[in-house]
Design a protein around this nucleic acid. Structure first.
Lengths: 188, 188
DNA sequence: TCATTTCTGGAATGCTTAGTCAAGAAAGGA
DNA sequence: TCCTTTCTTGACTAAGCATTCCAGAAATGA
């Protein structure tokens, strides 16, 4: 068998993610995709099926990467509370680029079961890690121990989404940092 | 001059708002609009110009009404802190329907100056009212007076957006109420 | 060199879209 | 009654869309 030219699927998918982040699903045409991905139209359809499947793959990959990054921050400091702060601060620093997770939830809500399933997988994993770390911080006396860890985690995630909307609406870096700080302080 | 049949522009615009809330700009076709608005296609173009102008009008009207409702809640109780709480609780109660403000910011970011201008008008008005009421609550000793009123207002707005994203992602009413409560408590 | 495989790019298909046009129905004033 | 205005309806145009088809280029193993 002859092994022949192969484009980098992962790179192409990352390029697609960038386009979907900026323009959403409906706002993105296949023309925009093939240009950004630098592959032929046929390769796109052969490799990814169709536009919707590609979008789902993009959301899945983005969510996994984003979850990894959140968890890495959560565990990036010995003290649990510092880890939580680093997670929130990283969001503030990266919020100038739109979030595909927020965008896809906003665009489709719960109307597409396959998309909802993708979100749930990432959500569960992140929530599990966050609850653990929140629990630790509570044990350290750094966070209010009367709060349920699940509620505290939900609050952090809602604030992350809020920060990202604020950023997309024009909030500057300093304002985002303040939001991150206030969200963390709320759990103290 | 003969006054003749006239459809209700305001009602038609409200119908358009409903469609745009659910499907966004790109996800809405003129076919969906004329059906929902119960007017002829020609009437739509004669009255509102084109799809984009109709969308801007819808966002503007929605933002004005939503701002009015927020402000009404803010002033719905003698004690400033209660007014702020009522604003947050109303959001929790109404969050099952998607927010056109969040949606349009998510879909277009800062890329359309006319849309950005519409948001800014509503934002400024709401922020002004919120800052006043926050300031009162601080004077009452109900809110942490070391916080800048602007930062506190931004925090509340970010939490409103976060609650709405959470709701669109499937959060139930109890979870939203908890988010509202935590956001308010954060400013104490 | 040749064969095999994969990617490319343009052309074609068929559907959907936004927006226009034109004929006529509805409604009320004169 | 007739006239004027506004709304409706369906047909139409022209562009854009996702997707498929096809001919050939690129790349590599034999």
């Amino acid at each position: 068998m002859a092994r022949t030219k192969e484009f980098d699927r992962t790179q192409a998918l990352d390029d697609a993610i960038q386009v979907f982040r900026e323009h959403g699903f409906e706002g993105t045409s296949t023309e925009m995709l093939v240009r950004a991905m630098k592959i032929g139209r046929q390769s796109l359809y052969d490799t990814f099926g169709d536009k919707w499947k590609l979008y789902c793959l993009a959301v899945e990959r983005y969510a996994a990467a984003e979850t990894d990054a959140h968890i890495a921050m959560l565990h990036g400091a010995p003290r649990a509370r510092d880890g939580i702060r680093e997670m929130m601060e990283r969001v503030a620093e990266n919020a100038s680029q739109p979030c595909l997770g927020v965008s896809s939830i906003c665009e489709f809500g719960q109307s597409r079961p396959d998309l909802t399933a993708i979100h749930q997988v990432a959500d569960r994993r992140l929530k599990h890690a966050a609850k653990q770390r929140i629990s630790e911080a509570q044990a350290d006396g750094d966070l209010n121990a009367t709060l349920s860890t699940g509620e505290a985690a939900n609050f952090l995630f809602a604030n992350i989404a809020g920060m990202r909307i604020a950023a997309r609406g024009g909030a500057d870096s300093a304002a985002l940092k303040t939001l991150a700080h206030l969200a963390l302080q709320a759990l103290t």
